[in-house]
Amino acid sequence: MFIELNTASSIPIYTQLRNQIVLGIGRGELKTGEHLPTVRQMAEAAGINVMTVNKVYAILRAEGFIEIDRRHGAVVCPRKENAEALQEKCSAQLELLIAESSLKGMSRESFFAICGEIFDRQQTAAENAFL
């Protein structure tokens, strides 16, 4: 999987890294059981601080996307049990996105069509990841 970090973006590096890994798992580019680079390897490759990567891995672990094995490092291991807890987060993030889309003139049908397309694509990849 290829992770792209924008060093000029206003989004913090750790947020970008976390989002990219989640997207990678969602798209199936990172399969269940696949190893992520160690904290040091990731930090060296990105040219960022070890503590930043450590923080990202801790967040991903708490969110149930990876597991950290002391011997083998970080392993992709998405868990499904947090679906209900995500609803609140989803509605908060979607509310802003829907507000922006409607203000810009996007129709309800177009919005749902895009949502459906992305959801189907991600779900297929996610199901493959669990196989």
């Binding site: 290829f2 992770i3 792209e4 970090l5 924008n6 000029a8 973006s9 390897q41 990731m42 990105a46």
Partner: peptide
Amino acid sequence: GDTHIVRIDTALSCVG
């Protein structure tokens, strides 16, 4: 492509 981009190939980084 875009400027200010740092790319990480996770498989490559794992090779060490």
